[in-house]
Design a protein around this nucleic acid. Structure first.
Lengths: 370, 370
DNA sequence: CTGTTAGCGCGTTCAG
DNA sequence: CTGAACGCGCTAACAG
């Protein structure tokens, strides 16, 4: 466990010189190939030489150069993660996915290269063509996403965070229709008869983002099933517009007793608006969230359906890595442990992983009498 | 501008075969080195061959392999971005920095490899030693951060997002002391005499994080300067503890009329608590934020000091890249445009970039009479 | 069986 | 403008 001071082969000045497999071989008194075999374990090495080599490695603080390995194997062991960025509209959720996808990729020995959309689709193309990564994960895909087209055109493997039936790529997603339907149904089951549904913002619906469309479907379905008066309040990226719409809906008669929220970016502003309308949560108005960040401490006091970020990240990392073909000299078994997941399908065309929602947080309060 | 179908040298099946500089050379009827010179522009090439080569490149859709370049030049053109992760406590701010640092790095032709702390400090060590990146950016450094020690031990260049006088590394930060002092001073200037300051959480103070310590200093200083009654409410990672403390402080006599908040993660919960105490914002209680995410739509209605994420990201990317020595065959001028920034210092030991705060949002409301 | 030698992967650059 | 060597690690083929 003691980390020996790495002694560079030349001087100890700025550690600018690199120690290579040759240095290790020399020090251990063996051939470079022997060192390589010790590292990869792909061949039997006598215990004596193995120990000598290991000692040399430790003393020199040797670590193989990733670029040399990649050049030889045609495998970078890097995943490109394409974060969508509508300029000026940072979504906290994207950062959370970035973290969790990175963790999930590490489990399979992969690192993650983060890419914003500031170059449009150019960054993805550049990374794919220069082989900086083995596969891509696309966040927040939308209908006819140009990034999907880039992957197809380049024959570059990838997987999607979000639902897109048109893209012939593996994907994972929360079942938004069921999620919103569940939230509304549970709210109705708690006794609420007049429910507001604050859907995704209009521009998200216009972009035909899956979660936006399916959320609307779920609300409609639950309204029919429960017979409750579910009124739709389309959200808007502009907080002032949102607040105006919400305030109107909150005071319109008959007065609603519950608010189901899918558009969460503006939550603080929204809660403020509720307070300004003189309503206390949950006494006067029950608020239920759909798609909240898990473990977000600021909303732990509200009933909600969390976005299964960890599960989605695990799934998408796995899907992307599975889509990578074998490397140049790759002899590793291609038949991996099948994806043990309830709602996934490997049998049909493109594999996917659809996740069923679960309620979290406190129970939904019933409407207050009066 | 028309993107010709990339025709692989072998077949068009799964685009699995790579087109190399040799393919281009063959097609253009020149030597590989000529193609290289055309690409790098590091040598005069006759217009005729230049065009022939360019045509071949376009037709084949050629793009140089990053691993080959890196192997040769000892430069990855990748920055490692080490996101701290206290398990279970995702901070949206980290994601935002990840995005912005990535954008800033791109300006200098660098990509960003995202690293979580799930392997502890191991990930950073691995990336540095395998030369997956040329330098590291450490987010949210704390006192005696083990990651700093890893960089020192490996002689790996890096820069810090956050302030640490002990680490001999370049850094950038918001001047938190001035920021909190400014917020308190402006609040006092608006007429408030009894002000609550909700500081960072106790565990952040205990970890001696710069922003936490400096924020406290700023509040103290402003209290002395303004003569206002500034009461400290130490925040806590547990929302329930926070709410209890805040509720007590809000009702203690004399009743405070303003709340300056540095600990923003729990903001929605906090606003809820304010509302539950029967207080309306800003009528009964003025709320001022310090260190909010810029462009965060949910808090646009509150006076605040935004965290200068974009400027910090630009600075830290630049600092990290400047810390990279020349590559193997790097002849590019080492004397770059000096960092033109008001509050930065390149002259002293380690360069840094300290950013002065600015108020944003609506003006601070005066206390309501009564 | 265990270790060694040789050649490859791809782009860059020096000497020709 | 071209030929060849090089950067570093992997692996097939060969030798003891």
């Amino acid at each position: 466990m003691d980390s020996t001071q790495p002694t560079g082969p030349k001087t100890g000045r700025v550690e600018v010189e690199m120690t290579t497999i040759k240095d290790v071989a020399e020090r251990a008194g063996v051939a470079p190939s022997t060192v390589s075999y010790v590292l990869s374990g792909s061949r039997k090495i006598s215990e004596d030489t193995r120990r000598a080599v290991q000692a040399a490695i430790d003393e020199l603080g040797y670590h193989p150069r990733a670029s040399a390995r990649t050049l030889r194997s045609a495998r970078t062991r890097v995943l490109a993660l394409a974060a969508p960025r509508v300029p000026g509209a940072y979504r906290a959720i994207d950062g959370r996915f970035a973290i969790d996808v990175t963790d999930a990729a590490r489990v399979h020995g992969y690192d993650v290269l983060l890419m914003t959309d500031s170059d449009g689709v150019g960054g993805l193309r550049r990374v794919a063509r220069s082989r900086l990564a083995d596969a891509a994960v696309l966040m927040a895909v939308e209908d006819r996403d140009p990034r999907v087209e880039v992957l197809r055109e380049l024959g570059f493997p990838g997987a999607l965070l979000g639902h897109d039936d048109h893209a012939a790529l593996p994907w994972t997603d929360l079942d938004w229709e069921v999620a919103v339907a569940l939230a509304v149904r549970e709210t109705a089951a708690a006794g609420h008869r007049r429910i507001l549904f604050l859907s995704s913002a209009e521009h998200e619906v216009a972009a035909r983002r899956g979660y936006a469309l399916h959320g609307l479907d779920g609300a409609r379905r639950a309204a029919v099933e429960t017979g409750a008066d579910v009124r739709l309040v389309p959200s808007h990226r502009d907080p002032d517009v949102l607040v105006r719409r919400l305030s109107e809906a909150l005071t319109a008669r008959p007065v609603p007793t519950a608010l189901v929220v899918q558009h969460l970016i503006l939550l603080p502003r929204l809660l403020d608006a509720v307070a300004e309308a003189g309503l206390r949560v949950p006494h006067d108005l029950t608020v239920v969230l759909v798609g909240s960040l898990p473990d977000e401490l600021g909303v732990r006091h509200l009933p909600r359906i969390d976005l299964p970020v960890a599960e989605m990240s695990t799934a998408v990392a796995r899907l992307a890595i599975d889509a990578i073909g074998p490397g140049r000299d790759d002899r590793s078994s291609t038949s991996q442990e099948p994806f043990a997941a309830p709602a996934s399908s490997m049998s049909s065309g493109t594999p996917h992983h659809l996740i069923q929602p679960r309620m979290a947080g406190p129970v939904i309060a019933p409407p207050s009498p009066g």
